[in-house]
């Protein structure tokens, strides 16, 4: 059974449709990536899933019940927000003293180990922490909570590369030992792409991609060569993006078969894979190509679910 079931979910702020008729589910014990541009609706979606906001229409079911005002559901959820607010005058150690009251799977030894690794000063006031330390605090709470459903919303603003790598490593290790459902929203797609098992791309409140990460790898390819050869090859295909430079051009197209690849090579075209990050940029860059790409991406996700 899915951990989260969303159907026809809509959230409107005045004239802005932040979440637009979304139907989606999150499977247990899977690390999901929730990707999209700023303002795409990622945070709003997570707030609706954690009962922090009311839907305009549609339904959300988490562990089989509505999360709104539902203590039974909420005790299984940990939501690490980009801008978590703490009580005035709280020190770092107060957070770790209180956390076990909220999370029944809280692992204090694991938290202590992470506090050391992230070099978090326990005695410091929260408001005196640097942006990176504040993010580290959130990451540690999120990991040590071992909540069956853990949300990380842009968890690492201000974290340096070493600390981010530490977060990825500890997340993978602990996930392997204690599988749980993780939903990670991020802009650093290149860094996290290998951690994800499932990828959701949201743009202007709508779901563009809902697919197994492995299905998505290799779902787009860039071909480059003379403009004439590129255009001849891409005619009749879904082109996600195209750039030209004089008589040269390169275009990103959806899924190529082995025969397509040989045909492209025979036509003198260079073929290069497209990373998840480049794919998301192509998909959510421009509305027209995004619509065309979304239809091919849906094909991708259907294939993913058949397996």
């Amino acid at each position: 059974m899915s951990v989260v079931e969303i159907s026809n979910l809509t959230k409107r702020f005045g004239s802005v449709l932040a979440v637009d008729d979304v139907t989606l589910s999150f499977e247990p014990d899977v690390i999901h990536g929730l990707l999209g541009r700023n303002g795409a609706g990622k945070t709003t979606l997570m707030q609706l899933l954690t009962g922090q906001d009311f839907a305009t229409s549609g339904t959300v079911s988490v562990f089989g019940a509505t999360p709104v005002e539902n203590a039974h559901v909420m005790k299984h959820i940990c939501f690490i927000k980009e801008s978590q607010k703490y009580p005035e005058d709280f020190r770092v150690k107060h957070v770790f003293k209180n956390a076990p009251l909220f999370f029944e799977n809280w692992d204090a030894a694991f938290a202590d180990k992470l506090i050391g690794e992230f070099r978090l000063p326990l005695g410091r006031r929260i408001k005196k922490l640097s942006r990176g330390q504040l993010s580290a605090l959130g990451v540690i709470v999120g990991l040590a909570s071992r909540a069956p459903l853990t949300f990380f919303d842009e968890p690492y603003l201000g974290l340096d590369a070493v600390a981010r790598q530490l977060f990825y490593d500890r997340l993978l290790e602990d996930f392997a030992e204690h599988p749980r459902t993780v939903i990670l929203s991020t802009h650093l797609i290149d860094e996290v792409q290998n951690l994800l098992e499932h990828v959701i791309v949201i743009n202007e409140g709508r779901i563009l991609v809902d697919s197994d990460a492995e299905e998505l790898r290799g779902s787009a390819t860039t071909v480059a060569g003379t403009a004439r050869a590129v255009d001849a090859f891409t005619a009749g295909r879904t082109v996600l993006s195209r750039q030209g430079l004089g008589s040269l051009a390169q275009a990103t197209v959806t899924r190529l078969s082995a025969e397509d690849r040989s045909a492209a090579a025979a036509a003198g075209l260079d073929i290069a894979p497209v990373s998840l990050q480049q794919l998301v940029v192509s998909l959510s860059g421009d509305a027209d190509t995004a619509a065309a790409a979304a239809s091919s991406a849906t094909t991708v996700s259907r294939k993913g679910q058949e397996r």
């Binding site: 690390i31 490593d169 993978l172 996930f175 392997a176 030992e177 290998n194 951690l195 994800l196 098992e197």
Partner: peptide, 18 residues
């Protein structure tokens, strides 16, 4: 083990298992 592959390559354990 699958988890050792996952940790070494920094990939999702489910993917390593596959």
């Amino acid at each position: 083990s699958t988890n050792e592959f996952a940790a070494f390559h920094r990939i999702n354990p489910a993917t390593a298992g596959k």
